[in-house]
Each structure stands twice: as structure tokens, then as C-alpha cells.
Write a protein that binds this DNA or RNA. Structure first.
Lengths: 73, 73
DNA sequence: TTTTTACATGAATTATATTTCTATAAAAGT
DNA sequence: ACTTTTATAGAAATATAATTCATGTAAAAA
């Protein structure tokens, strides 16, 4: 994993967590909405997973945000 | 793979191909810019792969488009 | 006709995404 | 103080992302 990969995952992870907390959703609730395991959502938010585009788009859908909210460079 | 997953991949795939052709880049050239195999880029454009967010963001970077260009629902 | 360029695909392999199970611990609620 | 909720994480197993190699096709160019 290259260094710029980590930068990407950091920003994606942080923005997901920020938007989730803004909506007062628990990891468990959001994971359930997106149909992924709680463990895996936790890994995403802690920058330990590189999720597929389908999962990211579903997360955005559940949070009612667009993709640019998660990465806007 | 659920049906709405396929809908997502279809739109993502089509938009990547459209933007690549608009810039007159070959699959080989774009794959090289993004540092993925030509075969895999071909699979993405033909809706046979579900790439990670890091790869999608790198593709957007190479095409100089934002994420919403690829998925805007 | 020959060569080159671009796109596509099957099979086999490797790397990694994702789940399941389990457990700990802090924080919040009662 | 007790209970419940929430977040975190290790390890092992499973699913699938991603590569490599080989090959084929078709169109454009020489």
C-alpha cells in the first residue's frame, strides 16, 4: 500500500465518521443500513480497510451525502 | 451480488469509459497512469469488477474529474 | 497484405476485502 | 452500583479483488 493510498483512506474514513456522528447514528445502525458487518465499518472508519466503490456509494446513500463529500480534491 | 450493486457498477463503468474516451486515452495508457493492469481496467469498464475506493479515486485523478462525475444520485 | 493499435476474454494464481466469533473496555443511561 | 450501549480489536475463515499469461478479434495504418 502506497503512501498516497493511506492519505486517501484517511480522508474517506474521517468524513464517513464525521457525517455518521452528525446524524447520531451508531456504527451498528449504519452498518445494518448498508448491509455490512459492524466490524468492517469500524475498520473503514479507523482507516484499516479499503472498501469497494459499491460499499462507499451505499454508505453515502445511507448518510444522504454525495461522493464529493467524502473526497473532494 | 445484489441487483442494485450491478446498477451502481454499470453507471460507474460507463462514466469512466465516457470520460476516458473524451480525453482520447487508451485503456492501456489510463491503466498505466493509475498503476493497475490493463486487464483490470478493461474489467471495470465492462462492469465485471467492483474496484476499491482508492482505485476509483486514482482513476478520477488521472481523468481530472471529481467523484460525483462517476456517481451522482 | 502486413503491421500496429485498441479492446476483449479464459484460466490460474495471488492479494486483499469482508465476515464471523469472541472479547474487552469506556461511556451513557437508569 | 448496575445495565445497556457503543466502539474497538485479534484471529481465523471465506469471498472476491486484482494480477499475470496467453490468446483472439477487429479496425486502422503502413
Amino acid at each position: 500500500m502506497a503512501m498516497d493510498d493511506k492519505l486517501i483512506l484517511e480522508e474517506v474514513a474521517d468524513n464517513i465518521r464525521i457525517e455518521r456522528l452528525r446524524r447520531r447514528l451508531s456504527q451498528e445502525k449504519l452498518a445494518e443500513m448498508v448491509d455490512i458487518s459492524t466490524k468492517y465499518l469500524n475498520m473503514i472508519e479507523n482507516r484499516k480497510a479499503n472498501p469497494t466503490i459499491v460499499i462507499v456509494i451505499k454508505i453515502c446513500g445511507a448518510l444522504d451525502i454525495d461522493l464529493n463529500t467524502i473526497w473532494s480534491k
